[in-house]
Design a protein around this nucleic acid. Structure first.
Lengths: 271, 271
DNA sequence: CGTGGCGTTCCACTCAGCGGTCCCTCTCGT
DNA sequence: ACGAGAGGGACCGCTGAGTGGAACGCCACG
């Protein structure tokens, strides 16, 4: 069967060197594995081999092998030719300090806040120049897909972000202000000067408001969670459709809960 | 160590071959990486290099390299010579079908249940012969560390497990019944016959009770979450200190919430 | 019945992973 | 102070594990 080929074998060499034995770019199996995992995101939680190949740029064989191996250690699972994140990852995630320390302490207070407000409650930590949403408590009146646990948003256009930023070092603030400030809605603060003024107000009041700066129709009140040395380790917020309620009615509740959490963390000695 | 080692150097070759070029056991970088990750569990969420070496049995150099690489792809993070689970894992976990599909639908109903009962609410799925806790809603009155999100418990001694088991195939039930039934408390059902009778009652009633079978002083009511073809995909429970309240008062609430979730999943077509 | 996309298997080449050895930096204990 | 011991980290030559091109089988189109 092969049309014509056979004896070739490795006989004919000069034609086209197999070359490119170079392991591509990120050298290292693990960095290539990371490339595979990086293909998964909120919009693509399930991927076929072909999609992973396209999104990662890895050779098909390599992607296939890595996917298979990842399945065998349960980091991925395979369901009808679609790969998705496996149970092992889920188990491991619960061992992260974010879960074990921060979440553990914060959740009961978030629960209180939810019961008092009946609105979506978020907990986030800073990650570089973004907020990583760590926990979300909500009922049926879900306003938006924004702020899904595990996702991120920029610091400058969210209540959580501004609350954190207002208590951060001048250095970090500078980095964010000099970075691009892209408008996510027509209310997003895109002027460095205006943002600086806003942060001063937040620092004074101890609460940050977001009035449709991240999404139209959505407002939020946020307060920072500080460690023993007054550095912001996280922030707490309540999000509410702007039409439904005045934000400042919730401010003191959010602030109180954030303070309780700060105290709780201090007690258990989170870094 | 053999008393005389003398020929040092690699000069003397035949004496003791460097040998052991074999990459140990689970061959494959990824399986070795899995060994490293397996060192982390609820009781050891933070590990030093030395501990990883001891727990994994890997050579120090290898463990060190893998840990470093895992840090560089943010699967781990290094904090003062202690490795812990990194943010990447946290982000990825939120893309798991357990989070994206099951949790997303179930959480609002769990919230309702919490508000009605003010007691700890659990959501779990079956994983082999165990329940994997997927979500937990609780306030300050936390009764126990049992059922932490991401952890597992045997099927036969938990409300969640019995609820799932009662609606599973005879085959699975058989596997569990013939497996070891270890008593976790003096109330744990350890007789296969008794357990079989219990499951029959659960199947008829649609609710499972756990009366101090997993932990002394702790009871729970659980109901299965079924898919379109009546197969149990998960279960819902409310846990309560036995002294505080009668379990059967909560039964219908749990059942109702579980039914709502089943319906919700059907609508969005979870497998 | 070709054409093309996809998943999967095969295999020779070679470079990335391996791990023993050495070294540095901290505690301790005396 | 100072040696002993434990832990973290760097170096480096050897080799087999990982690599990726090629080819195969399968389906769904046109």
């Amino acid at each position: 069967m092969n049309g014509g080929r056979t004896l070739e074998q490795h006989g004919g060499r000069d034609a086209h060197v197999p070359q490119a034995r170079t392991p591509a770019d990120g050298v290292g199996v693990l960095s290539r594995t990371a490339m595979v995992l990086r293909c998964f995101d909120a919009r693509h939680p399930r991927l076929t081999l072909a999609k992973v190949v396209r999104r990662s740029g890895l050779p098909k064989t390599t992607a296939h092998r890595l996917l298979t191996e990842l399945c065998s250690i349960r980091m991925l699972s395979l369901d009808n030719h679609e790969y998705c994140i496996g149970q092992r990852v889920f188990e491991l995630a619960s061992l992260s300090p974010l879960s074990l320390e921060l979440r553990e302490v914060a959740v009961p207070f978030m629960q209180d806040l939810y019961q008092a407000s009946q609105e979506t409650v978020h907990l986030g930590v800073r990650m570089r120049h973004e907020v990583l949403y760590v926990e979300k408590i909500r009922g049926h009146r879900q306003v938006t897909q924004l702020g899904r646990t595990g996702s991120s948003m920029p610091l400058y256009c969210t209540g959580l972000g501004k609350a954190i930023l207002a208590f951060s070092t001048a250095e970090l603030v500078e980095e964010v202000l000099t970075g691009p400030l892209l408008p996510r809605t027509r209310h997003t603060i895109v002027s460095a000067a205006a943002l600086r003024r806003e942060l001063a107000v937040v620092a004074e009041r101890g609460v940050a408001f977001d009035r449709e700066e991240a999404a139209i129709g959505l407002g939020c009140v946020a307060a920072p969670i500080l460690d023993a040395s007054n550095r912001p380790v996280a922030a707490l917020s309540v999000s509410v459709p702007v039409a439904r309620r005045r934000l400042d009615q919730l401010a003191s509740a959010v602030q109180t809960a954030a303070l309780s959490i700060s105290r709780g963390l201090g007690r258990q000695g989170l870094l």
